[in-house]
Amino acid sequence: MGEKIISKINLEDEQDIYVKRGMVRAEFDFWVGIVMDKFYEGLQNKQFIGTKCSKCGKVFLPPRNRCADCFAKAEEFVELPQTGVVKNFTVSNYNVTERRVRKAKEPNMVGLIQIDGADTAMVVPIINTNPDDLKEGMKVKVVWAKNIKGHPNDIAGFEPVGGG
């Protein structure tokens, strides 16, 4: 083929094809679909929008169009209150950014929060309290972010009702 064929053994003195590095850019999207779009639209109006199963009446938040238990359609949208209950929680002392992990100044509290009237729970930050006061079953209410743009970060976190 008119080209010098480089074998693996002679690579050192020839062009080293194995250590050349190139960047491959891979972009991935994720369609949220009509149902989750309604949820984000709700956040924009400071509302929680869930769906209700047409058969067993279970309420899903975040919404889904199919009941997990009875495989029936769950396409009725319902508005849910701004308060909920801590079902479970954890405390982390580290901050994770894109580049590094470092010790946080204040511990991060994350909880599995079930909005009143919903049968499912969401993982969201718990704020304006301290880890010692956290307990399962405590009442919380939502704190909205300053800039609302229809994004998961619109929920700044949940704080205890009545200051804990």
Binding site: F30, W31, V32, G33, I34, V35, M36, R64, N65, R66
Partner: peptide
């Protein structure tokens, strides 16, 4: 070419 009205789970469903 783009079923952006559903997510992957809903598409399968």
């Amino acid at each position: 070419s783009k079923r952006s009205d559903v997510n992957m789970a809903e598409l399968v469903n």
